[in-house]
Design a protein around this nucleic acid. Structure first.
Lengths: 131, 131
DNA sequence: GCGCATCTACTACTCGGGTAGTAATACTGG
DNA sequence: CCAGTATTACTACCCGAGTAGTAGATGCGC
């Protein structure tokens, strides 16, 4: 649970397929990833084995092929990885990260407006929850 | 320049020392990192060689020891790594990242207030620049 | 049933981060 | 000048991500 769900590129790409489809065979994963890059079936299969060993996916047999499903949610992975990065780059200070986003990452007025709305919305949500 | 300044844990720890001190010898870096974890001098030295090969630090000789200095700024590294993560986890959508921070990462009222202030400040800055 | 296609299993290799021992070298104190 | 110390150079590992070939098993078409 509280594990480090830090995924590499391919692992994450595979997870995205599984999250989107609920579950998928090796062939299906490969197919879904085909436009991004062409990888051998065995590459996907090997990776899935490693991922299962790590405990982030599981499989069941359907006929003679394996159907894989995710064991961690996208949100969990996001939390892990964003948290990791925030710690590493900003000493765990979330506002420092947001500040960086505002000043160093290109953000246009439209996005800024959405951010403002997000924060306003969040505040009211907090209040509604009785904070 | 536009390179991928994606650093591992140790590399980043070393960079933090160099950023803080401007430049430092191997021994100084090790000393600064001592409280975090005890690593052999040669570990730091080897890493610095690899980092120099990557082009993110450089050294000059002072007597018989090397004095290393950073060749990339902290901001550049933050931009690279935050950008990378934003692409990987949120399809490049910065507002999605902020939204995640608001809903999934624990943010208290004080931080929220600071965020609001940040955004307000940023907006006025934009306006001042004539956007 | 034979042969071909499809799958998984196993094995192997590259690469970069991380860690460190040992060798060579240069300096320093007595 | 000589022994010990500090410092870099070289070498060697381990590990996990990623990539894929080959082998072995299993099902399918005819």
């Amino acid at each position: 649970m509280g594990d480090k769900h830090i995924l590499g590129d391919l692992q994450h790409a595979i997870m995205r397929v599984l999250w989107a489809e609920g579950e998928a065979t090796v062939a299906r994963v490969q197919e879904a990833l085909e436009d991004e890059r062409d990888r051998a079936l065995t590459t996907i299969a090997t990776m899935l084995v490693k991922m299962e060993k790590k405990g982030i996916v599981a499989h069941r047999s359907e006929g003679r092929q394996f159907v894989y499903r995710p064991l961690v949610s996208e949100t969990e992975v996001q939390r892990s990885m964003v948290g990791e990065l925030t710690d590493m780059l900003f000493g765990g200070d979330v506002t420092a990260l947001v500040s960086h986003l505002l000043t160093e990452q290109e953000i246009d007025d439209k996005e800024l407006a959405r951010l403002k709305a997000l924060i306003a919305e969040h505040r009211s949500k907090e209040r509604r929850r009785g904070r």
